[in-house]
């Protein structure tokens, strides 16, 4: 593993630990101890990262936001990976008409403008639990994974060891499960790690527009949205969630790129 990949992995691990442990030690993200005199405070021992316009503790909101933002992204990526893999495998392996129909379905999924679909669906559904938001994001993210897995499946179908398994009399389902499916995993792993960065940004964007995680619940994108009026007077309100977003997305990208490089040459 390269040094950059280690850095990426370390940052992601730290952020994940922060998302799990942070909310416990940081207290209530929605508490407004002193809205009159306690708002827009600079960092201090009482408020490590200061307070926002409603006197809420920014560290607590960042921690709570980390839990929600990272969970949404992780759920979105997992849903897309599982659903996309299943569909991609089926499209690549199914013979004749069934395979072609599944391929058309994937093409259709790729052709839909993801942001617009999400805006419409999220606006219609209104406020939702963040787990459900993750599922909705994942439900629009599968086509890219499906296309990738279908390609890998088509490639692996011609691998000589697949021919060997068929020659041994392995039924199609067994060939798919033992010989082809494991071969698609590295590509899915790479795509999912890179996809994590996309999902984090997507959630932040949607929350910024106001259709993702909605106030008063904390999310990194929502924090940015609420901070936008104070960029001149209290710039750290903007900087802190921005920094978190940049750290998370670049860590995922570094790790994903390193994984891609290490997995590309087929284990000799």
């Amino acid at each position: 593993m390269t040094r950059l990949a280690r850095v990426g992995l370390a940052i992601l691990t730290l952020l994940a630990a922060f998302a799990i442990v942070g909310p416990w030690i940081a207290g209530d993200p929605n508490a407004q101890p002193d809205p009159v005199n306690g708002s827009l405070l600079l960092p201090s021992p009482a408020h490590w990262l200061g307070t926002d316009q409603l006197s809420r503790d920014i560290f607590a909101r960042l921690a709570s936001g980390a839990r929600i933002s990272l969970a949404v992204a992780a759920i979105a990526v997992s849903v897309a990976a599982v659903f996309g893999s299943a569909l991609g495998l089926a499209a690549g392996a199914a013979p004749g008409l069934a395979g072609r129909l599944l391929q058309r379905l994937i093409d259709l999924g790729l052709a839909l403008p993801r942001i617009i679909v999400l805006l419409v669906v999220l606006a219609a559904l209104g406020r939702m639990h963040y787990v459900l938001l993750g599922v909705v994001l994942g439900a629009t993210g599968w086509p890219a994974v499906a296309r990738l897995v279908r390609g890998e499946t088509l490639r692996l179908r011609h691998a000589q060891y697949v021919a060997a398994a068929r020659a041994l009399g392995a039924p199609p389902a067994r060939v798919l499960w033992y010989e082809i499916f494991p071969g698609t995993l590295p590509a899915v792993l790479v795509a999912s790690t890179l996809g994590l960065a996309d999902a984090i940004l997507l959630e932040a964007g949607l929350s910024f527009i106001g259709v993702g995680i909605r106030p008063p619940e904390a999310s990194w994108g929502g924090m940015l949205y609420e901070a936008r009026d104070y960029i001149g007077s209290a710039p750290w309100l903007v900087f802190i969630p921005c920094l978190a977003l940049v750290a998370a997305t670049s860590a995922a990208t570094l790790l994903g790129d390193a994984l891609r490089r290490s997995l590309q040459p087929e284990t000799r």
């Binding site: 000589q160 021919a163 060997a164 041994l168 009399g169 010989e179 494991p182 071969g183 000799r268």
Partner: peptide
């Protein structure tokens, strides 16, 4: 046909491609 494959087998040219690297 799958049952009959017990009786007829194949050995491939490329020993690097004919074994599944992940098994």
């Amino acid at each position: 046909l799958r049952a009959l494959r017990r009786r007829m087998q194949i050995v491939f040219q490329d020993p690097f491609a004919s074994l599944n690297p992940r098994r």
